[in-house]
Design a protein around this nucleic acid. Sequence first.
DNA 1: GACATAAAGCAAATATTTTGCGTTTGGCGG
DNA 2: CCGCCAAACGCAAAATATTTGCTTTATGTC
Lengths: 196, 196
Amino acid sequence: MGRVVGDSGAIMAERAGVRPGGRSARVQQAVHQAVKCLEASAPRESLTVPRIAATAGVTPSTIYRRWGDLAELLADVSLSRLRPDGEPPDTGTLVGDLQAWGEQYLEEMVSAPGQRALNDVMASADLERRQCCYRYGESIMATLVARARARGEAAPEVAALMDGVVAPMTYRLLYDPEGATPARLSVWIAGVLRWA
Amino acid sequence: MGRVVGDSGAIMAERAGVRPGGRSARVQQAVHQAVKCLEASAPRESLTVPRIAATAGVTPSTIYRRWGDLAELLADVSLSRLRPDGEPPDTGTLVGDLQAWGEQYLEEMVSAPGQRALNDVMASADLERRQCCYRYGESIMATLVARARARGEAAPEVAALMDGVVAPMTYRLLYDPEGATPARLSVWIAGVLRWA
DNA sequence: GACATAAAGCAAATATTTTGCGTTTGGCGG
DNA sequence: CCGCCAAACGCAAAATATTTGCTTTATGTC
């Protein structure tokens, strides 16, 4: 019963649903927007499918048929919050790039909205969506590595960065947000770069 | 609105609810058992609060009042699956202990039931429960470190093991189960121990 | 043993999700 | 450009699930 959910499948592709044409796309956007709007203006537990539907000017059954349930819808919306929106800043060195990107990401994700977004995505039943997050991370690391190598710096494999930096970062964000600090970030980065 | 949820709060404490006496405990156990039973014998989407209640011989409202909703109940039950059930095997060296424990844990968690358990816990709204997983990991690492030091081996800090081994392991299990392999585990372990 | 109170049962009131069917509309081949 | 097909939506009734007020049971304490 794999439900087709918005644009989540492809990296950097805007609205790549099964039938991207006019109405379908409009509904999707209206619903996403309704969620964001209600999320901002009302307590979370009051976020319900019928309410979202009403706000979006759509019938509940449309939402149920497209997304399955509230959890999947929220995951879909929150995933868009996790998508990297631009090129990570260039600081001149790999260490610097990693630290800069990481600090900004940590700051964004320890915040209440960030934590909720992470949670929403993790709550989703389908692996696809989480793998999508994984690929976001991978693509960022790949960018930084490419950049470093273009500068002539020695750089570790992307996989090493995923395990050495992104993994502990994400792990802390999910399981121990208090421990997700810039200080620790430096330690992780130093650890990976120590032998590259 | 913090709902009191079973025994999840304390490590290794069996049934430490607010009022651990007879009936309350019996209900809790009946409900947990009903979940496990239905989980094993029926498709997941048919797992519903009223059905669980019926199987457990309890009224739905009891479940709603105690756990809040299905997601929290499932998280509570699945957390017990994640709780370490015994001492990790002693292989004579820290590397060996880490590898042995890790392989067994990976195997357990890449399986379908393991993945579902992980997912259930992650889907829970309350951080408490996830921090509980974190502490399980910490306590195991602490055990292994203590053991190693008792043998006179040099051992890294627990925090280093968390970031260097448990984090990438968990990260892969959650985001990229294909990549959660014993081979990678060795790499992570070697990485942490390289400078201890 | 009696009291105070947490937790459970019960059932009515709400709210939600599901479903069948008719209508609209975007994609596609003439 | 036209018309066909199928996907997606709307609507409303039916089926389920959730909440809630009140009563009853049972636990921990004195």
